[in-house]
Design a protein around this nucleic acid. Structure first.
Lengths: 236, 236
DNA sequence: TCGAGGTTTCGAACGGTGTTCGTTGACGAA
DNA sequence: TTCGTCAACGAACACCGTTCGAAACCTCGA
C-alpha cells in the first residue's frame, strides 16, 4: 500500500544490498512485533526470521538461542517502564504500589513477556534501576535490610505471575462474552456446592468471582504485599 | 528385576487382553511417572503413550488434548496435599503459613506441575477443600469477606509462582556448584556496580543474594502475605 | 587490483512436538 | 452368525529449536 507506483520492480542496487544486515536490534524488533501481535507462543525462531524475510538459521549468528532471545525481549520491555517520580519517604507505600502498577502496565502492553520473564534474574540496566528504587522506597519505610533485599524478588515475582496468569487466560481466545459466561458458571458452581461441606465457599461465591477481569484483584494483591512489608518496619 | 523366572514369555491370555484397556486414570498415572522422573518438559503425548506401550493417537479417545492432561496432573498433585490439623482461630496465621508450606512441598515433589497449574482456576474436590480452609482461616482472623475471597487467588498464585520459578531454574540442569558459582558471580556483580548510581544495590549485595536456594525466601514471602492479610482484619 | 581469510547468510535437514485422519479389529446386541 | 459401534493406532501434517555446510559477502594486506 505504501509502495509508490514508479518504484522499479527490480531494485537498482543488487538484491543483496537492498536488505540491511541483520543485527540483534533488528531481530529483537521483529520478535517484539510478533510478540505484541500474536502472543508469546507465536514467537518462534521461524516466525521471527520470516518477519525479517530470511530463514531461522540466520538468527543464530546474532543470538545464541531462543532463551537468549527471550531475555532480550524481557529487557526491551523493562526499558519501557517509567519510574519518574522522586522518592518521597512520606509516601513510600503509595509509590511502591504505583511502581507495581507501572510494571503490570508494561507487561500487559507486551503480552507474553511475562512468560519469558518469570524466573529470570533481572540484570539489565533498567531492571537495576527498578531494584534500586524498590530498595530506596523500602529503606524510606524503615523495612529491615534483609526484608528489603528479598522484597526485590517478591515484588516482581507477584506482578509477573499476575501478568502471566492473564496471558494464559487470554491465550484461550475467548470472547468477553465467553469469559463472562465462564465466570457466571463458576459462581453458580460455587453457590451450588453442598453447604455442609463448603459453607464459606457457598456463602462467598459472589465475592470470589467478582473483579475477575478488572484491576481490583491486582490492587488487592499489591495492598496486601505493601501492608505486609510495612508491618515488618523497624520501630523508629 | 521383579519378573519371576517361571513367568511364561508369551502370556497365556490372548495378547489383546494382556493389555488393560486404556482409561483416564492409567493415562494420568503414566503421565505422572514421566513428570516425576523427567520433569514437565518431558511430558509429551508421545512419551506418555510410549510409557503405556502405545501411540499418541490412542490417548485422544480419553483426553481432549494436552491442556486437559495438564489439568488432570494438577488435580492429581492437589490430591496429595494434606491439611489435617483442626482450624484453631487463635493460630490462624501460623496455620495459613503451614498450608502454604504444604502446597509448596507437593509442588516441589511433582516438579513441573506448577507450570501446568499456574493460571488455572482450582475446581477439583481437593482444591475446593483448600479453598474452604483458606476462607475458614481468614474468617477466624476477622479478614473481610471480599479480601478473603481474593486471597483464595493470591495465596495459590504466590506459592505456584515460587514453585514455577524453581522448576525453571532447575530445568537448566545446573549442578549445585554451578548455582553457587552463579550466586557468587551475581553478588560480585551487584557489589561492583557504580555506588553513586546504585548505592543500595551495592550495599545490599550480600542480603540480596542470600537464601537463594533455601526456604528462607519463601518463608519471607508467606510472612509478608500473612501479615498483610492480618492488617486488613476488621477491628473487633 | 587481486586474492585470501573471516564472517554472515541461509537452504536443507534432524529429531522433537501436538494433533488429525482413516483404517483395523474386537466386542456386544440382534 | 452377522452387524454396528467404538477404542486402538499407524501414518501423516504442520509446526518447533537447532545444526551443518556451502555459498555470498566484506575487509584488508600484498
Amino acid at each position: 500500500m505504501t509502495q509508490h507506483p514508479w518504484q522499479p520492480i527490480s531494485p537498482a542496487k543488487p538484491a543483496r544490498a537492498a536488505k540491511e544486515p541483520l543485527n540483534r536490534e533488528r531481530i529483537v524488533d521483529a520478535a517484539m512485533r510478533v510478540l505484541v501481535s500474536n502472543g508469546y507462543d507465536a514467537v518462534s525462531m521461524r516466525k521471527v526470521a520470516q518477519e525479517l524475510g530470511t530463514g531461522p538459521a540466520s538468527l543464530y549468528a546474532h543470538v545464541a538461542n531462543k532463551r537468549e532471545l527471550d531475555q532480550l525481549l524481557v529487557e526491551r520491555a523493562a526499558s519501557q517502564m517509567k519510574f519518574d517520580e522522586e522518592v518521597d519517604p512520606e509516601r513510600w507505600q503509595e509509590q511502591l504500589k504505583a511502581m507495581m502498577r507501572e510494571m503490570l502496565r508494561v507487561l500487559r502492553a507486551n503480552p507474553g513477556v511475562a512468560q519469558a520473564s518469570i524466573g529470570q534474574v533481572p540484570l539489565g540496566e533498567r531492571a537495576l534501576r527498578s531494584t534500586e528504587r524498590i530498595l530506596t522506597l523500602l529503606k524510606a519505610g524503615n523495612v529491615p535490610d534483609q526484608a528489603a533485599a528479598w522484597a526485590v524478588d517478591l515484588i516482581p515475582l507477584y506482578v509477573t505471575a499476575v501478568a502471566f496468569e492473564e496471558t494464559v487466560q487470554s491465550a484461550t481466545n475467548w470472547t468477553p462474552e465467553d469469559v463472562e459466561g465462564f465466570i457466571r458458571g463458576l459462581r453458580e458452581y460455587f453457590a451450588s456446592l453442598p453447604a455442609d461441606q463448603f459453607p464459606l465457599t457457598v456463602a462467598l461465591a459472589g465475592p470470589m468471582t467478582s473483579g475477575a477481569t478488572g484491576d481490583e484483584r491486582f490492587e488487592f494483591g499489591i495492598t496486601v504485599i505493601t501492608a505486609g512489608l510495612a508491618s515488618l518496619a523497624k520501630p523508629h
